[in-house]
Amino acid sequence: MKLIKPQDSITDLQLIQLWQDGSTDAFETLYRRYSLNLLAIALDKTRDRELAEELVQDTFISFYNSKVSVGKMTTPMAFLYIILKNKILSLHRRNLVQQRYQNLLKHSYSEADEHTQSLIETRELERLLNTEIEKLPDQCRKVFQLRRQESLSNKQVAEQLLISENTVEQHMRKALRLLRIAFVKHDVLVLLFVLERYL
């Protein structure tokens, strides 16, 4: 099959037909013909060359996967532009949702930290914490108490109890999981933030 070069005066319709007939050269020619225009659009919308190049690559992948449905299309640039525009819009939507989530999370943790500071010193919360710690499985409780009350490192706890550091970490994760369950039942979610620092 004759190779299709960028300078050939072949129409888009002919390229699409050749591509659907199995010519990879035809698809590559379409890519060379329109990729720079799409890159300019993506770069203008994102101001990030690496991201723009990724969007263009994704656009052509989607275009390639639409091979069967583009049979009667005579303006591939319009089709490619629509694909790219949808990908850019999806990207902006994801970024917006992510930013809102991060702001909400930051605000929530800020409020929780202030709330924790005022409540954790109360005797009732301390009593509840100690009560639930005593309910932990024996080895799990020992590990948690050494980490929490004596502020030992994982290595120090492992040496004292003659177990591996990995086992210490497993017991800590188990303790935190069980205490979380207990505090949810007690509706004392503020203590969950305190427990995080013991891992």
Score class of each variant (00 low, 15 high):
residue 1 M to A: 08
residue 2 K to D: 00
residue 4 I to D: 04
residue 4 I to L: 15
residue 4 I to M: 12
residue 8 D to Q: 14
residue 11 T to C: 07
residue 12 D to C: 11
residue 13 L to F: 13
residue 18 L to I: 00
residue 19 W to R: 05
residue 20 Q to P: 10
residue 23 S to N: 11
residue 24 T to L: 15
residue 25 D to S: 06
residue 26 A to S: 03
residue 27 F to A: 05
residue 28 E to S: 06
residue 30 L to N: 09
residue 30 L to C: 08
residue 34 Y to D: 00
residue 36 L to T: 09
residue 36 L to R: 13
residue 39 L to D: 00
residue 39 L to Q: 02
residue 41 I to Y: 11
residue 45 K to F: 04
residue 47 R to K: 15
residue 47 R to L: 08
residue 50 E to A: 14
residue 51 L to D: 01
residue 52 A to F: 03
residue 53 E to L: 04
residue 54 E to F: 11
residue 56 V to H: 00
residue 56 V to N: 02
residue 57 Q to F: 09
residue 58 D to W: 04
residue 60 F to N: 05
residue 61 I to D: 01
residue 62 S to I: 13
residue 63 F to V: 09
residue 64 Y to S: 06
residue 64 Y to Q: 05
residue 64 Y to P: 01
residue 65 N to Y: 07
residue 66 S to L: 07
residue 67 K to H: 05
residue 67 K to V: 02
residue 67 K to W: 02
residue 69 S to Q: 04
residue 69 S to E: 03
residue 70 V to I: 15
residue 72 K to M: 04
residue 73 M to Y: 00
residue 74 T to F: 09
residue 75 T to A: 14
residue 77 M to Y: 14
residue 80 L to C: 10
residue 82 I to M: 08
residue 82 I to P: 00
residue 84 L to Y: 09
residue 86 N to P: 02
residue 87 K to S: 12
residue 88 I to K: 07
residue 88 I to Y: 00
residue 89 L to C: 08
residue 91 L to R: 12
residue 94 R to Q: 07
residue 95 N to H: 06
residue 96 L to A: 07
residue 99 Q to L: 00
residue 99 Q to E: 00
residue 99 Q to W: 00
residue 100 R to W: 02
residue 101 Y to K: 15
residue 101 Y to A: 14
residue 102 Q to I: 03
residue 102 Q to W: 02
residue 103 N to T: 04
residue 103 N to C: 05
residue 104 L to A: 14
residue 104 L to Y: 11
residue 109 Y to D: 07
residue 112 A to Q: 09
residue 113 D to L: 12
residue 113 D to C: 08
residue 113 D to S: 13
residue 114 E to Q: 13
residue 114 E to A: 13
residue 115 H to F: 15
residue 116 T to R: 15
residue 118 S to K: 13
residue 118 S to D: 09
residue 119 L to W: 11
residue 122 T to I: 02
residue 122 T to S: 14
residue 125 L to N: 08
residue 130 N to K: 12
residue 133 I to Q: 10
residue 133 I to R: 11
residue 133 I to S: 05
residue 134 E to C: 02
residue 135 K to V: 02
residue 139 Q to D: 09
residue 141 R to D: 03
residue 143 V to G: 05
residue 144 F to L: 06
residue 144 F to V: 03
residue 147 R to M: 06
residue 148 R to C: 10
residue 150 E to P: 02
residue 150 E to F: 08
residue 150 E to G: 01
residue 153 S to V: 03
residue 157 V to F: 10
residue 158 A to W: 03
residue 159 E to D: 06
residue 160 Q to A: 01
residue 161 L to N: 01
residue 163 I to E: 05
residue 163 I to V: 13
residue 167 T to W: 11
residue 167 T to C: 06
residue 167 T to E: 07
residue 168 V to P: 10
residue 168 V to C: 06
residue 169 E to G: 11
residue 169 E to N: 13
residue 171 H to T: 00
residue 172 M to Q: 14
residue 177 R to V: 06
residue 177 R to I: 09
residue 177 R to K: 13
residue 179 L to Q: 03
residue 181 I to A: 12
residue 184 V to K: 13
residue 187 D to G: 04
residue 189 L to E: 04
residue 189 L to S: 05
residue 191 L to C: 07
residue 194 V to W: 15
residue 194 V to N: 08
residue 194 V to F: 15
residue 197 R to E: 07
residue 197 R to N: 06
residue 198 Y to F: 13
residue 199 L to R: 13
